[in-house]
Design a protein around this nucleic acid. Sequence first.
DNA 1: AATTATTTTTAGATTTACCTAAAAATAAAA
DNA 2: TTTTATTTTTAGGTAAATCTAAAAATAATT
Lengths: 220, 220
Amino acid sequence: MQSYTEENYLKTIYHLAEKTTNVQTNAIAEQMQTKPASVTDMIKKLADKGLVDYIKYQGVTLTETGKNTAIDIVRKHRLWEVFLVDKLNFKWDEVHDVAEELEHIKSIELIERLDEFLGFPKADPHGDPIPDKNGRFAKTQFIKLIELKVGDAGTITGVSQHSSAFLKHLEKLGLTLGKQIQINDVTDFDGSVEILLSDKQVNISREVAKHILISSNGKN
Amino acid sequence: MQSYTEENYLKTIYHLAEKTTNVQTNAIAEQMQTKPASVTDMIKKLADKGLVDYIKYQGVTLTETGKNTAIDIVRKHRLWEVFLVDKLNFKWDEVHDVAEELEHIKSIELIERLDEFLGFPKADPHGDPIPDKNGRFAKTQFIKLIELKVGDAGTITGVSQHSSAFLKHLEKLGLTLGKQIQINDVTDFDGSVEILLSDKQVNISREVAKHILISSNGKN
DNA sequence: AATTATTTTTAGATTTACCTAAAAATAAAA
DNA sequence: TTTTATTTTTAGGTAAATCTAAAAATAATT
Ligand SMILES: [Mn+2]
Ligand SMILES: [Mn+2]
Ligand SMILES: [Mn+2]
Ligand SMILES: [Mn+2]
């Protein structure tokens, strides 16, 4: 049984490991809004518990057990997000902090039944995949919108940035999950992208385009 | 802002204060499965925060703020219990421990929307009243089944014992909330009570009869 | 009223999750 | 390959919530 704090560390390490194989102390500290010294302390504890492999100065990797635990927390987090949006009418930019707390409720039964109640959803409100009760989930094949070329079309199926400001911005522009888009033009001047969305046209900055994930379905 | 622990103390004090005006250290310790010394420490902290009035050796009482905080936690606890039973199909004897955790999730928005989602329920699965968002609730007028006389009738509207064993027992006997009952007989030998329930007859011990709450609706 | 029993509080420790400041190891630059 | 910069760890300490053992206050009995 892990403490809330341990669970948060495991989840953070898991997410960081999606980008770099060896997760560094400083990266964890930044993500968790804490100090590197505190991270070292916690890493030692997690290593003692067999949840991470740790060699001094070489960063950490999750063990099988550690990874499974992390995936389970991710599963809970995403299921709760679906609940908040689908059932309680939260907006997709409002759910993260509450889910951050709810993910730590310890009851297998609860999460099984919640999953069923929600109709066994495959993705959360941000398009991130929800692991099933065995921790399995399809590794979704996304392309960043910024990588599309003029003429390319696709469907918005995810975002790689979960800040409320970013999500609110997308919402205002009508760039929500499931929407069909096509690239009309890429502005020479600032690299901003002109998108065709249903009938209207929308212009988004490079920065925004980087964080929209597209499942490509045409024109190439 | 209170810690989970502080919230649990406040709730415990609130419940104990329903029975005795001055809540004693030992009573809190027993209820919270901790030692009296720990309780004294916590009481001092709660007193410093203005949540309880405390005179050494004289026990504690909740201040207005403390009472409001406690009621808010009770509200959350009971709403989550309704959610678990109504939406996730938990049995009434399975919800307590999970609700014990869920009640500490800190989000006013969450609980408002949950309340609405559930249809603003007035009572939890055990018949206990759910305070509204201003902390107000009707003080329900119950009679213990054991106090009824032969011939008296009424409706089961609550229980004063929440242990899983007790609730499972009631369920098996068909003595669930909303059921109409009538007292057929009280056995001389052991004081057990013979109840008419729909068409069948049920015999319950004095101990069980003490913890069933009836809203009397007839024959007197 | 004195004695005994119960309740409550204090004193001193422990564990968890943090912190700061300084030392040690590793990586990057000159 | 030194020197410098960055990263990571250690050393020593704090605050929250607990504990045990012992002392103090209150309540109950003789
Ligand atoms: Mn969390
Ligand atoms: Mn999400
Ligand atoms: Mn609780
Ligand atoms: Mn209840």
